[in-house]
Structures are given as structure tokens and as C-alpha cells.
Amino acid sequence: MTVFLQNLVNALQWGSFYALIAIGYSMVYSILMLFNFAHGDVFMTGAYIGCGIALLLVGLGSAGILVLPGWLVLVLTLLLAMVVTACLGMFIERVGYRPLRDAPRASAAITGLMIGIILETGNLILLGAQRVKFPALIQPVTYELGGVFVTNQKIMIVIVALGLALALHQFIRRTRWGMAMRAMAFDYAVVPLMGVPINRIAALTFALGSGLAAAAGILFGMAYPVLDPYMGIVFGWKSFVAAILGGRGSILGATLAGFLLGFIEIFVAMVFPSTLRDFIAYSIILLILVFRPYGLFGEPYSVRLRL
């Protein structure tokens, strides 16, 4: 039982990363009919940007110029990195995807792959091949509850991930901008007829998705403090799986699927040798998709792509 609960805690943390990245995939896919295959590398870039900001703030602190408590450094790092990465996302949309809006979907998909490679190699050129260490921002505290060990950091990671997912869900349900996003997910071609500037909605979608990916990157950097330029690839692919598993355009679906992925991976590793982890975990997901091809929470949409 304690082993189970311990793994549950670990799975929640692990799933938080998938959930945050999957949301970005899912939103862009539903609103622009586009698989943004650069998204995993946006997560990586977000982690680096967050790391840079954190190092800067910590450096300012130790130089005595601007001494801030650790939690405030973390909050500032999260906010600033999310904003900067959101700008990166909007830039990618503007330069990479918007010119291909009406091009075959395969062209847009390989554009994503190319942008991903550019981000990876750009990072290598800029920072060199050595790995970067993410600074520790909060004093680790470990709580023991009936034999289960929980750190304050794990709690923080799960709460931030859930909070961001929920905030985004509310944004999409309740605001005018969110309404436009839902409308675009249903029938893209008619939205301009409502007087809605679809390019701005597209930019907003990328900004939100990239912001969440940056948050995932920073949370990941805090849990596993060594960053490398290729860390986004496997994470990106797996989150992409979570996005599809969650169902097209469903924020809650992507979030739940992200956590589900985390659970399956962690619990498979609990029972089987860890070398078999992904083999078995992704066979299970393949099976789920066979029975639910639209994912867990797929929403209906119009198949007519033009007016």
C-alpha cells in the first residue's frame, strides 16, 4: 500500500509535465488543424529560458543587488519565462505556420519538425554541449505521511500544473477570447464572419500553449535539475500522445490524459523491469485508442474546412 501511494505521488508529478505540454498540443491542433511538432522543443527552450532567468535572479541576490526570497524568485521565474516563451510561440506561429495556413497539412507538420531542430541546434550553438544545471530555488522539505514521502516541491509542482490547467479551462469557458477559440475549433472558416481577427486568436493560442510548456519546463528543471537541448524530444512525443488520447481540443481531456500517461508509466515501471516501461505503457495506450479512437473527451467539430 505504501509503495502504491508513493508511486501515486510520483505519478502525479510525472503526469504534471505531460499534462502541461499536452494542453498546448491539443489547443493548437483543435484551433488551427495543425500538429505543432516543435512544441516539445518549446518546452525545452522554456526550461532554458526559465533557468536563465532563475540564475540571473539568484545572481542578483547573491551580489546583494536584489535580494528576494526563494519562493518569489520562483514565481518571478515562472511568470517571466512564461511570457518570454509565449512570445517565442507567437513568433513561431507568425514566421513558421501562418504563411502555411492554407498549405497541405503535411507541409505544416514538417515545418514544426524543422523549427524543433532549429531550436535544438540553436541552443547548442548558443550554450555549447555541456549540460546546464537548474538552480535550486526552494529549500526542500520532506514530509512523511504513513511511510509515504512527499516533498514540498512535488506538492508545488502538482498544484501549479493543476492550477494552470484549471485557469486555462476557465479562460476558454468564460471569456470572449476563449469563446472565439472554441468557435474556431468547431468551424475555422466562419469565424472571420463574426468580426473576429483569427490571426490574433491563432497568436493567442500559441502564446498560451507555449506559456504552459515553459511552466512545464521550469517545473521539470526543479525536479530534475539537469537540462540538455534534446530533453524536449521524447517529452514532446509522449505529450503529443497524451493530447490525442485526451481528445481533440479538450483542455481537461489533455490534462487527464497527461496524468494518465504519468500513472501508466510509473506503475508499469513498478511491476515490470524499467527497460520494458515504455514498451508496455504505450501498448496500453494504443489499446485505449483502438477502443476510443477520438480520445477520452473528443469534442465534435465541423469537417468543412472552407466556406
Binding site: 469563446m179 472554441r182 468557435a183 475549433a185 468547431f186 468551424d187 472558416a189 466562419v190 469534442e299 465534435p300 467539430y301 465541423s302 468543412r304 466556406l307
Partner: peptide, 9 residues
């Protein structure tokens, strides 16, 4: 043509 409402809204 065909109304094209946002049926999910």
C-alpha cells in the same frame, strides 16, 4: 450557405 453555426456553443 448551410448556416454554419457554432454547434458546440
Amino acid at each position: 450557405e448551410g448556416r454554419r453555426l457554432f454547434e458546440n456553443l
